[in-house]
């Protein structure tokens, strides 16, 4: 399931709802929550821009690829857009499977590919002004290990 939200969400509530929705054939759930990091520069806010339409298309493709690769019962990707502040959740990803290995691997796969393929961009508001976040080579390498 894919959700793009423009208001704050509670990752604990996301996990509880996902867990409750799982059938009794599920033996394990792995999840990842990405938070707005203040960092050494103490950013004041983070604004997430995205490309409506393409975002959903790419996230659905990433989710479908994970289901193709592992035996999964269910997956969820919730991504926030708009302006948010340090400590708030940006993204929540979870994978449920009969066995833990598939759940853990699929969770990492979803977030790694989301970071390199899904059309989101981060604008940081720092004490010295606004700045677009540059893509990280380490994110590309993290996704490449799944090739």
């Amino acid at each position: 399931m894919i959700r793009i939200v423009d208001t704050a969400f509670d990752p604990g509530a996301e996990l509880a709802a996902f867990t409750a929705s799982c059938p009794d054939t599920v033996g394990g759930i792995a999840s990842f929550t990405g938070l707005v990091r203040a960092g050494p520069e103490r950013i004041r806010s983070l604004t997430l821009e995205h490309y409506p339409g393409m975002t959903e298309t790419k996230l659905a493709a990433i989710e479908a690829a994970a289901h193709e690769r592992w035996k999964l019962s269910a997956t969820v990707i919730t991504h926030r857009v708009g302006r948010m502040t340090p400590g708030e959740a940006v993204v929540f990803v979870a994978a449920a499977a009969p066995h833990r290995a598939a759940a853990l691997a699929a969770c990492a796969y979803l977030i790694d590919w989301l970071k390199t393929e899904a059309p989101f961009w981060k604008l940081e508001e720092t004490p010295s002004g606004e700045r677009w976040v540059a893509a990280r080579e380490s994110d590309t390498e993290a996704a490449a290990r799944w090739r």
Binding site: H79, V90, V91, K115, T116, P119, F120, W121, W132, A135
Partner: peptide, 10 residues
Amino acid sequence: VALFPPVTGG
């Protein structure tokens, strides 16, 4: 056609 910088979501 959309033009944009490398993505930075997540």
